[in-house]
Amino acid sequence: MDIRIDHTFPRNRGGFRLQVDIGADSRRLAFFGPSGSGKTLTLHALSGLFQPQSGYIRVGDRVLLDSAKGICLPARKRNIGYLFQDYALFPHLTVRQNIAFPFGRPWRAARRRERNTRVEAMLDSFELTAVADSFPSGISGGQKQRVALARALVTRPSLLLLDEPFSALDPLLRIRVREQCGAMLALFPTPAVIITHDPEDVMIFADSVTLYERGRAGETRSLDSLTERDAENSELLRTLVRARSVREFLRRTEAPARSF
């Protein structure tokens, strides 16, 4: 995956400049940084919802954007799954209809059968069969997220984007949903990019991390390569290294902790 973006907003819209140069072959990449540093904008550029002034985006062997050659695939042709921060479930459709949305209303019976099989399989693997005919307003936060995930994955996208997937949940629910979501994602081979400002998310989901600060994406590092030395140079890396040591400490003390 290659992402190169250079975009400057006009001064009357804040004058924000986004500069990204990421080359990564990681299956689980995290964009880590404070809010307003350009993470979501990068995801929008990846999915085709935002067209930067100049840039080049390659996912796998497909070039999605090459401003030098005038290539810019529209969002609908990129085949990239997008899990929105507030899930963006269609409120007028049931859970089943939400997941079936990408297939439209096929005319041919064979197509309809294929759609139904795939939707039912998704409902089953995401444990949503019981609420399949409910509307999004009537299900829990964790279920909403599973619906959004199932809908994003049902088309078998070549890349999955997760935009702050747990920030909409309250802290108690967050831990459980995060574990569940991690387990669900492990079932699918789809490479994923996750945006977060929570170091725990990075630890659970990612194998590499790109740091974001004030519109600039720094170099991409694999989590294993992070050392105490990095922590001295950057505050963002310090929070990551600290979160890693906390996790390691918990893992070592897990057995005695469970006993009371």
Binding site: P74, A75, R76, R78, F84, A88, F90, P91, P102, A152
Partner: peptide, 15 residues
């Protein structure tokens, strides 16, 4: 209408 919903439809392949 929430623009995120329209964007979601676009990423799901809708014209």
């Amino acid at each position: 209408v929430d623009h995120t919903l329209e964007n979601a439809a676009r990423t799901l392949g809708a014209t």
